[in-house]
């Protein structure tokens, strides 16, 4: 129990850094800095997930958030401007109202949530407990999430992979990676 007491201070530090990065992303005008900061935000998020014991989520966040999306954002920046233009004050107020309403709704929902680490919470109680009991002698691998994803719900995961693969293939066929860039360079020359 001593570990949890100490690591919560690390959690606070990570959350404070997340908050600072979030504000900086909103305030900065240089889009390149914003792209770098979104990558840093993903890294911090994943570090925080590790400290919350959600290693699988952290793995996905690190691979997708910090790895792929930084490169995708850079590619998107190549097609647009390098500096963002300041938005009008009217838009700020509209966005503030929407964000404040959504935040108030979230705070309203907090009391209904189970306590952190509650063994009787719905996520831990019904099917989750069965999986925790069955996995060791059904599949005999230590990671329950991997067992659920790739064995119990293997066909589901296969379907997801097919959907993501065909989406990526469609985007690549539509945008025509490689050929378009070469043509543009020839036009410039």
């Amino acid at each position: 129990m001593n570990h949890a007491d100490l690591t919560q201070y690390l959690d606070y530090l990570l959350i404070a850094m997340l908050l600072a990065v979030g504000f900086a992303i909103v305030r900065l005008r240089n889009l390149f800095a914003v792209v770098m900061l979104t990558g840093v935000y993903s890294l911090l998020c994943a570090a925080w997930f590790v400290s919350l014991d959600a290693v699988d989520v952290a793995f996905t966040e690190a691979a997708v958030g910090a790895g792929i999306s930084t490169v995708l954002m850079l590619g998107a920046m190549l097609l647009t401007a390098r500096e963002s233009e300041p938005a009008g004050v009217g838009r700020h107020w509209a966005a503030f109202v929407v964000v404040a309403a959504a935040g108030a709704a979230l705070f309203f929902a907090i009391p209904d949530m189970p306590v952190y680490g509650d063994p009787e919470s719905p996520a831990n109680a019904y099917v989750g407990r069965d999986y925790l009991e069955q996995v060791p002698h059904d599949i005999s691998i230590p990671n329950v999430v991997t067992a659920v994803l790739s064995s119990y719900r293997g066909f589901d995961t296969l379907g997801e992979v097919v959907v993501v693969f065909s989406a990526a293939l469609g985007v690549m066929l539509l945008l025509g990676f490689g050929t378009g860039a070469r043509r543009r360079e020839e036009e410039e020359d």
Binding site: M36, G39, A46, V50, A58, F59, A62, G67, V71
Partner: peptide, 19 residues
Amino acid sequence: AIDIALLYALINFVATIAI
């Protein structure tokens, strides 16, 4: 967490090269 740290080291390298 060591696995995540290894993945980070790789991704960090790739992202820096990409930038």
